[in-house]
């Protein structure tokens, strides 16, 4: 590291738990960031500023004006041009730290591409907005023995938990993937920037601890943070959880080898049908109330329908959905994740 580079990181190196050896480890590290919204954007920016050697980014979405209050990597110009977030993020991060090698991909991370995407990474940051991809990531990282940092937010609240090879995984704590619509999304319940920035910062602190050799399985804590009611907790997910986990104890990569939601483009109808891999009955009454934030919701005993952001979403009681307004499966999945959750 040159004199100028040493000066650049001098305040971070002076922080004793990192030190010169820690900075060298950070410089050598390759870190992936999945999802480049409010969480992933802050994570990627802080990691680039910290001097991470390489950042691998992936996101399937475009920048929109409704992102700008919390997604700090982007500006009005990005939203006007509807740039893919991965493209806009790469440009911005290169201006922040030209020495960090950035590799950005505009795509959906799923069971078919996740293992290749993980190759060579030391750590993965979770900036996702849905459980479906998180459960795929949890399986794939467990299989490759790559640590990742579960991070999620809604409203003023969220959770952070490092998932390391010798500690509990997401499935140990959450169990099986929650049913679609069982938890609110940022689009239905809202979200504020102080929450996402705080949670992403806690996740990056955990990442720096891991990269500098200071976070092993026994150190794992689940941080529960509410910036509005000022309730901060660190909870201990202990070994007992792993003994009941189908992945950690049973070695079952259930989500890696199945496609939880199958997407079928409905030719000539400008619509995509989404079919969950495992059917679970939706609570249409509760979902209907959540979706009222987007406008009027039509419903009957079999389905409900509402429109938002240029798309029309029809949800059936058996979990199927039709997203009208696109023929792109990744766009339809993103609309479903934002409006229903998964």
């Amino acid at each position: 590291m040159s004199g100028a580079e040493a000066e650049r990181y001098s305040r971070q190196v002076r922080f004793a738990p990192i030190g010169a050896a820690g900075q060298e480890a950070i410089d050598r590290a390759s870190v992936g960031v999945v999802g480049l919204g409010a969480l992933g954007g802050v994570m990627a920016e802080q990691l680039a500023r910290a001097g991470v050697g390489a950042l691998r980014l992936i996101d399937r979405d475009l920048v929109e004006f409704s992102n700008l209050h919390r997604q700090t990597l982007y500006d009005e110009s990005d939203a006007r041009r509807r740039l893919p977030k991965a493209v806009a993020a790469e440009r911005r991060l290169k201006r922040i730290n030209s020495r960090t090698a950035i590799q950005a991909t505009v795509d959906d991370l799923n069971g078919s591409n996740v293992e290749g995407w993980l190759e060579g990474l030391d750590l993965v940051m979770d900036g996702l907005d849905n459980f479906e991809t998180r459960f795929v990531l949890n399986d794939a990282c467990r299989k490759a023995r790559i640590p990742w940092i579960y991070t999620a937010a809604v409203g003023s609240y969220g959770l952070v938990m490092p998932v390391v090879p010798d500690g509990p995984c997401l499935r140990c704590v959450v169990g099986n993937m929650p049913a679609a619509g069982s938890s609110p999304t940022c689009d239905t319940a809202g979200v504020i920037a102080p929450a996402t920035a705080a949670l992403a910062s806690v996740a990056v602190a955990a990442a720096l601890r891991r990269l500098t050799g200071r976070l092993a399985g026994g150190d794992v804590r689940l941080a529960s943070i509410d910036v509005w009611s000022l309730r901060f907790q660190t909870l201990r997910p202990e070994a007992e959880l792993r003994r009941a986990c189908p992945l950690c104890e049973g070695g079952r990569f259930d989500y890696l080898h199945t496609e939880p939601v199958r997407a079928i483009t409905m030719c000539g109808r400008n619509a995509v049908q989404l079919i969950p891999g495992s059917r679970s009955e939706l609570d249409l009454d509760t979902l209907g109330r959540s979706l009222e934030v987007f406008g009027p919701v039509e419903s009957n005993e079999f389905l409900l329908r509402c429109a938002a952001e240029g798309f029309e979403l029809t949800l059936f009681r058996d979990g199927r959905a039709i997203v009208r307004g696109t023929e792109e499966p990744s766009v339809a999945r993103a609309v479903y994740s934002r409006m229903v959750g998964s």
């Binding site: 999802g35 609240y157 969220g158 959770l159 959450v174 929650p178 938890s183």
Partner: peptide, 8 residues
């Protein structure tokens, strides 16, 4: 009570 959170 800690619900699983999926947003981001």
């Amino acid at each position: 009570i800690v619900p699983a959170v999926s947003g981001g």
